[in-house]
């Protein structure tokens, strides 16, 4: 047999790109986003300083589009296409993996809707100069608050299950034991992100800055 080059089908490549884009850059950005927003737990000044630093990076719009907006649009758009091609049967076969399969689709949609609204209100309506008080103001509205909590939980869940899926689907966790470990890793990530996300929301809502005394100490 000749060493003919392998030509994977285009749908194969798009599907792999969908899986990869959920981890990098989308998942990685989510981690960065939760991290920089947890500066709210330190204090208002520190948060604004951190925000300004991010808002003044060079090539800002290009970086945002390439690393955040386009990957999220692709991941969400192609994800909906994948959803439409599947047919959930969790009522007939209520196994854990099957539940995760179904929930992964709904949480993805909720997260996508939330992110769209979140980017619109906090990135575009503020002309890219969102501050602590903008977010704090938004979270005074009980509906916005509820939407934030739901958005944070849906995104965290989706990332956690996504990590498990990614490790299985790239064969990085191939044996039953490795897949079980991958599941635990995904669950931990989902839980930690949920917790941190909620703490950030609480911080804005109650003006609660538990790590603030380190700032005042010096």
């Amino acid at each position: 047999m000749s060493a003919a080059a392998t030509r994977p089908d285009r749908s194969y490549l798009l599907r792999k790109l969908h899986s990869l884009s959920g981890i990098v850059p989308v998942g990685a950005f989510l981690a960065e986003h939760f991290w920089s927003n947890s500066y709210a737990l330190v204090g208002v000044a520190k948060y604004n300083e951190k925000s300004q630093e991010l808002q003044t990076i060079p090539f800002r719009v290009i970086v945002e589009a390439a690393v955040i907006w386009l990957p999220i649009l692709y991941h969400g758009g192609y994800g909906v296409y994948i959803w439409l091609k599947g047919k959930s049967n969790v009522s007939d076969y209520p196994w854990v993996g099957n539940w995760l399969y179904t929930l992964q689709r709904y949480t993805g949609l909720v997260a996508f809707a939330f992110i769209g609204w979140h980017v619109w209100t906090e990135r575009f309506l503020t002309q890219g100069k969102s501050t602590y008080s903008d977010v704090e103001h938004a979270l005074r509205n009980p509906y916005y608050l509820a939407f934030y909590v739901i958005g944070v939980l849906a995104s965290s869940f989706h990332l956690g299950v996504g990590i498990w899926n990614f490790l299985c689907k790239w064969g990085l966790a191939a044996t039953v034991q490795a897949q079980r470990a991958a599941g635990k890793l995904g669950a931990t990530v989902g839980f930690v992100f949920s917790l941190v996300g909620i703490l950030i929301v609480v911080s804005f809502r109650l003006n609660w800055h538990p790590f603030g005394h380190f700032v005042t100490l010096k």
Binding site: W95, C168, K169, G171
Partner: peptide, 28 residues
């Protein structure tokens, strides 16, 4: 690539074939 990791197959196989391991391995 159409596999979406619901992992139902391995539960339903009467011959207890490690299908999810096979899929992961072939994916790699």
């Amino acid at each position: 690539a159409d596999c979406a990791n619901a992992q139902n197959c391995v539960k339903a196989c009467p011959k207890e074939i490690p299908l999810t391991e096979s899929i992961a391995e072939m994916n790699r």
